[in-house]
Design a protein around this nucleic acid. Structure first.
Length: 822
RNA sequence: GGACGUGUAGCUCAGCGGUAGAGCACCUCGUUGACAUCGAGGGGGUCACAGGUUCGAUCCCUGUCACGUCCA
């Protein structure tokens, strides 16, 4: 609509862990053999089958929501093109020394039997215990007490650490203790990691099973003994009695044995945080394995700089802080996963373990032949890559990279990434790092973080909680436009959306309202006039609605440009319902039904013009309804240049100056009607009663009164219709039995004495007077303050003076009316 | 423990230095030729609390409390 070539390229990633889990669970439920028995090829085939069957859900939801993606370009991270990009990136990073294989502690998920990245670990606070164990000194001169929440790890202890400043233990540093159960002699080392304030001040060191202990182990050259296997059971590195035991069974056995040895010095209950796999939900183990790592520290630097200097802008800007915080403290990124569903790592091993990292097996074989001086069989790495490794290439891999395609030239760097803040580290950060490194440019100039949708009570939707609202169901019930409007209107930045069906229902009603308004226009012959010029309309109501339309169009345009989508939606809601339907349509009815052919024609043309603008402005939020109405009104009046709304030109009404005189006139009419209606309702004037509307006017009446009088008489038919009065007439004073009210400084009155109850009217007047008195009092206090008058801006002071004068005048008039009643 | 966010009408949320707003819910009235998926009117708020800045604070600053999220 803005005439730009906008590309929204849809697609999905292969969600490695999640997908493999689903299919494995399915296999188990069907009583089939597990993936290990099936073999890699058959299993991957099975996952593809599952993907073909159910993988379209996300895109189906997008389609039904009316997302205007270029579906012909839909991509999937395991597509051949994207996979080639993955291999290219892997090999290049490896050759640049930014991707390497290393034996390090990783987070190991014993359920999934794979390494997972730090981000996939969830820290949960749970109840646990501190067990205090005594380790006897080698020389028999005593013992040293250590505390642990994980007794089974003592099987892999290779030292005890104490703080170098801790005088209690200074004499023990360098001595050894004999590790109970195991019998191994391990040193007592001095290391700052030991906190003298905590427990005994001495801490057991298990370098192969704790991230902190790993560091201590490196500093002191300690042995690293891996006492677990891939399943979280005790390995052969432990004493025979423990081998094969589940880690939690082993824990109990260790404690029992310490107790039997009379080396258990106490048990304290404690609450502590324990790492869990975010997918599997089981306790993850720090585990010493060979994995592939990306040097994120190096890659992060240009990515940090790009946000610092504004080449990429995060919106809302507050997220920059989160981004920097993470990027500046980034750790090496473990990218290998012991799964089968994903991009297999393009690394091949020779018989002696030499590794050849190449894009194809042929290249690897060639490299091996050169290396060994003879053709040598190779074995490909069994592991696959973290899904985010391929997702991180999305902005350019989907445009054809590494080939220098036309698409890449045209659409890269991309303009805006819209995503959830919950994947700022997983995805945004990785795209920034990889995009900067491989293209030398930012992958996107702007990142817009949308709100996260929660259920009506604010809980995150999840299948296990059963509180998921499927967009497809909501669309079936309320329509895509209602859902889109709801999400848009509630998308205030920095806030989650609590989605309730009531709200969607309300916006469904809004759609119905617009539909009915369009029907009204149609029934009343509103049709586009050939050569219609909104700047040239004569009627005040028409001039006013043209001005309001232009103002709304400008405000909506600005709001969208500034990512204020909720503001845009709310502006449209108010304009369409409250301004156009409630007032313009009602004020226009007498003209449309009247005898003045010229005025009628102008109103019809104006209404048709406003409707066209409304349809355009609302189209981005409610595309289905507006396109349908656009189509239905295609043949009404002058032909449109734009057959389809989706490609119609966005309205630029900045050239239409607001008409202050028309606005003043219509606002007076609106006030006269609103206030009058309020009186009728409060005093229970019967609906059928049609009194006159009396305007109190004398020869010496002020400007305000004359203005209201003119406005009212100029729109007398509308006033009669909407206020349900028989006529508008003038009196010099309030007639006996008439109920006065003040509008913009003018006094109006409704002679309805015969219909009403005096007490109700007295009460109404008293309430009104009290309100005015309060306003006057408050304003007077302000004006009596010399500091206020001296320091506040002149227009504010003037505004208050006027307010005071108006309130007092109105109060006097109503007071005298009340006095007369009494 | 650290960081960020949020506390405004019964509910969901706008507003963010100068007279407290909307939608829903609630109450009253209404079968007027666009619309009862509607119309008209109404009740309802010491803007979490305590200080400070200012002529003036729901809005800015500081602290406290509560809730949420992320990172340890």
């Amino acid at each position: 609509m803005r005439g730009k070539a906008a590309l929204w390229l849809p697609g999905t990633d292969h969600a490695g862990i999640a997908t493999q889990m689903v299919v494995e669970r399915q296999l188990a439920a069907e009583g089939n053999i597990g993936r290990r028995d099936m073999g890699r090829e058959a299993f991957v085939e099975r996952v593809w089958a599952w993907k073909a069957e159910s993988g379209g859900t996300i895109t189906r939801q997008l389609r039904r929501l009316g997302a205007s993606c270029d579906w012909s370009r839909e991509r999937f991270t395991l597509d051949e093109g994207l996979s080639a990009a993955v291999r290219k990136v892997f090999v290049t990073l490896h050759k640049q020394g930014l991707l390497y294989r290393d034996k390090r502690l990783v987070n190991w998920d014993p359920h999934l039997q794979t390494a997972i990245s730090d981000l996939e670990v969830e820290q949960r606070e749970v109840d646990g215990h501190f067990w205090r164990f005594a380790y006897p000194l080698e020389d028999g001169s005593g013992e040293i007490v250590v505390a642990t929440t994980r007794p089974e790890t003592m099987l892999g202890d290779t030292a005890v650490a104490v703080n170098p400043k801790d005088v209690r233990y200074a004499h023990l540093v360098g001595k050894r203790v004999r590790l109970p159960i195991v019998g191994r002699l391990i040193p007592i080392v001095a290391d700052d990691y030991a906190d003298p304030e905590k427990g005994s001040g001495a801490v057991k060191i298990t370098p192969a099973h704790d991230f902190n202990d790993f560091q201590v182990g490196k500093r002191h050259g300690l042995e690293m003994i891996n006492i677990l296997d891939d399943f979280g059971c005790i390995s052969d590195a432990a004493p025979e009695a423990y081998r094969g035991l589940d880690r939690f069974v082993a824990r109990k056995k260790v404690v029992a044995e310490f107790e039997a040895l009379e080396l258990l010095r106490g048990i304290d209950p404690t609450r502590h945080v324990v790492p869990h796999g975010d997918r599997s939900g089981v306790v993850v183990e720090p585990y010493l394995t060979d994995q592939w790592f990306v040097d994120a520290v190096t890659l992060a630097k240009p990515a940090i700089a790009a946000v610092e200097d504004g080449r990429t802008v995060l919106e809302p800007a507050a997220w920059s802080k989160t981004y920097f915080e993470w990027m500046r403290n980034i750790e090496p990124w473990c990218v290998s996963r012991q799964l089968w569903w994903g991009h297999r790592i393009p690394a091949w091993y020779g018989p002696d373990g030499a590794v050849f990292v190449e894009e194809t097996e042929a290249e690897a074989l060639a490299a091996a032949a050169a290396h060994y001086g003879a053709k040598t069989p190779l074995r490909q790495d069994e592991d696959v890559l973290d899904t985010w490794f391929s997702s991180g290439l999305w902005p350019f891999s989907t445009l054809g990279w590494p080939e220098p395609t036309e698409d890449l030239k045209r659409f890269y760097p991309t303009h805006t990434l819209v995503t959830g803040f919950d994947i700022i580290f997983y995805w945004v950060a990785r795209m920034m790092m990889l995009g900067m490194h491989f293209t030398g440019e930012v992958p996107f100039r702007r990142v817009f973080f949308n709100a996260l949708v929660r259920d009506a009570s604010g809980k995150k939707m999840s299948k296990s909680k059963g509180n998921v609202m499927d967009p497809l169901d909501l669309i079936d019930t309320y329509g895509a436009d209602a859902l889109r409007f709801t999400l848009t209107a509630m998308s205030g930045q920095g806030r989650d959306i609590k989605l309730s069906t009531q709200r969607i229902e309300g916006y469904r009603n809004f759609g119905t309202k617009l539909w009915n308004a369009a029907r009204f226009c149609q029934v009343n012959g509103c049709a586009r006039a050939e050569g219609f010029d909104p700047a040239a309309v004569k009627g005040a109501v028409n001039r006013w609605i043209v001005g309001e339309t232009a103002r709304t169009a400008g405000a909506v345009t600005d709001a969208i440009a500034g990512c204020g989508f909720d503001e845009a939606a709310n502006l449209l809601y108010r304009f369409i319902w409250n301004t156009f339907c409630d007032w313009y349509v009602e004020l226009s009815k007498p003209v449309l039904n009247g005898a003045d052919a010229e005025a009628q024609a102008e109103t019809r043309a104006t209404a048709a013009w406003v409707m066209d603008v409304i349809l355009k402005l609302l189209h981005p939020v409610m595309p289905f309804l507006t396109e349908e109405l656009w189509d239905q009104t295609a043949d009404l009046g002058a032909a449109r240049a734009e057959p389809m709304l989706i490609s119609a030109r966005w309205p630029d009404l900045s050239g239409l100056a607001p008409d202050a005189a028309a606005a003043a006139e219509v606002n007076s009419v609106i006030a006269a009607i609103s206030e009058g209606r309020s009186i009728r309702a409060e005093l229970n004037v019967p609906v059928g009663a049609r009194p006159s509307l009396v305007i109190i006017r004398t020869n010496s009446s002020d400007e305000a009164t004359l203005q209201v009088a003119t406005a009212t008489t100029s729109n007398v038919a509308a006033v009669c219709h909407m206020l349900r009065v028989s006529d508008v007439r003038f009196e010099e004073s309030i007639p006996d039995g008439a109920i006065p009210y003040v509008v913009q400084g003018a006094t109006l009155a409704l002679p309805v004495a015969e219909f009403i109850d005096l007490a109700a009217e007295k009460a109404r007047l008293a309430k009104e007077i009290a309100g005015l008195a309060a306003t006057a009092e408050q304003t007077r206090r302000k004006l009596d303050n010399p500091d206020f008058v001296a320091r506040a801006p002149e227009e504010v002071v003037e505004e208050n003076r006027e307010r005071l004068a108006e309130a007092e005048a109105a109060r006097e008039r109503l007071q005298s009316a009340l006095t007369r009643l009494s």
